[in-house]
């Protein structure tokens, strides 16, 4: 199997996704974790481009990087004065060993399932050049009800998070 340009770029994007992911989990500084999360989301967006899902790639950048990560950063900065930050960011040895064993078992079962899998490929069917049109059609016809329910969920979240986090007025 020859290694083409596409494979190299894919590997770079995969590393851009995986390495910050490790930093998120193992960094002792919460701010470093939050910034590493930016790069993980950016790498995921690149993977979506590889999979011809342009709309999702843009959505990923807008919602995750522009929304969730920035919100997370603000929340971290708002709770900066908490005490005992050293203790909070510590990783205890026995817990690490147990979690590592559990994660290894999980990864092993994933790999085992992957090894035996035979997927029905449909590689030659006509795939629309732009997926946005197909997505719009599906969202407004077959999946109209879930779409509306999600918009109600967003409204509830908007009101609910404001109610939860406001300071109680005396």
């Amino acid at each position: 199997m020859e290694i083409g340009m596409r494979d190299i770029v894919f590997l770079c994007v995969a590393l851009l996704t995986t390495i910050p992911c490790l930093i998120v989990v193992f960094s002792r500084n919460v701010l470093y974790s939050a910034f590493a999360l930016f790069f993980t989301f950016l790498g995921t967006s690149g993977l979506y481009f590889f999979l011809d899902a342009e709309f999702l790639a843009i959505t990923q950048v807008v919602v995750y990087i522009g929304g969730v990560s920035v919100l997370l950063l603000f929340a971290i900065l708002l709770t900066k004065n908490v005490d005992e930050i050293r203790k909070t960011n510590m990783i205890s040895g026995p817990r690490m060993a147990l979690a590592g064993a559990a994660a290894l078992a999980l990864l092993g079962s994933f790999l085992y399932a992957l090894k035996g899998a035979r997927w029905a490929m449909n590689g030659n069917a006509a795939y629309p050049a732009t997926t946005i049109k197909g997505l719009g059609d599906l969202l407004l016809s077959k999946y109209l009800l879930p779409f509306e329910i999600v918009s109600i969920l967003l409204l509830a979240v908007l009101v609910g998070s404001l109610v939860i986090s406001r300071r109680s007025v005396q």
Binding site: A99, L106, L107
Partner: peptide, 12 residues
């Protein structure tokens, strides 16, 4: 990625 996330939830 999923396994790394699981490790994060379990250890941190």
């Amino acid at each position: 990625l999923f396994t790394i996330g699981v490790v994060g939830v379990l250890t941190r």
